[in-house]
Computed example of a mutant assay.
Amino acid sequence: MNRRRIALILVATTATLPALTGCQAVDSVVDYFGPRPENRLLALADSAATDALALNGVDDHAAGIRSSQADALYAEITRLCGTDDAGNPPRSCEVERPTKANRAADSSEVMENAASATTAAADEVTVESRTLVTEQAIALNAWLPGDAPAIPELSQPEQKSAADLLAWEYEQVYALDFARAYVGAEHEDNVDHRLEVHHRRIDALQEALGRYGTVPQPEPAYSSGDQELPHDSASALDFLGGLAEQDGRKWSAAAAQAAQEESPDQDWITWLIGIAAESHSMR
């Protein structure tokens, strides 16, 4: 649309507005045509803010999580709308944060509902915001107890991603087995638990990929990447901490990438978010 056409529209629109002077008329047009908060993002932000109020004094840790998430979501709304030199969004994009909420009876129910709604929205918000929403879904699912969901049927692109994740899991098991030889006896149960989790993921990925053809097998050995291999108990604990951080980042990135696909698969995203949450809870 050319500038002359835009100017004519603005003139015509201004003519339909009440008789206003100078800046008032311009402000009214800007308010009418200006950017608006993305509806799904605003709903998530308002829900997080309401949850924080409802949980305050009931479960302060959960309230803090939801308050921080609300802050991030409102900031994302402002970022998408744009700001003036003073950092303020257009009036058309201003939002009012909830200030009242009924006191929650059960923090688990609130957080479970939040996790479900945020997970469902991971591929529904604007593409630019999907990484943020996916990260929040992971944090909420990590707060909840319970196992990760069952792996769904895989499309061809998802099979490629699953094969990459399977190779990653093989590498994690190799590294954990190596580190177990150096940790003290008091840490062996923790390592064994982590090995059990990774083997469960391997079984799920192998079974899912086996429906479509040959399943990738583990290599005889793997490098330690940027980490130095452990040589005693202290270095083994550092090594294990590094592995946990890397695992959380790997699965979080896989979930965010899946949410940003042109035709995202909600079941696949939900599974990836569940596994990423599991990784974060093991840190």
Rank of each mutant, 00 (worst) to 15 (best):
Q227L: 12
Q172W: 05
L176F: 15
M111P: 11
S252A: 11
D189N: 15
S129W: 01
D60W: 04
L73T: 01
G241F: 09
N56C: 10
C81E: 00
Q260K: 09
E278Y: 01
G210P: 03
G184P: 09
R180A: 12
N102P: 00
T214H: 09
S235N: 08
K250F: 12
T119F: 04
G184K: 07
A255R: 02
T99I: 08
E128Q: 09
L132R: 00
H61F: 11
A114V: 03
E124L: 15
E158I: 03
V29T: 08
A185M: 01
H231Y: 13
E196N: 15
P98V: 04
Q206M: 14
G82W: 00
G34K: 04
R194S: 13
E128N: 11
S155A: 14
R40F: 02
A19R: 10
G225T: 03
D85S: 07
Q69A: 07
S224M: 10
A175C: 13
L17C: 11
T214E: 12
D84F: 05
W168T: 10
A167L: 10
D238Q: 15
A259S: 13
I77E: 00
P89L: 03
A163H: 01
A221C: 08
A25W: 08
P149D: 06
E96I: 13
S252M: 05
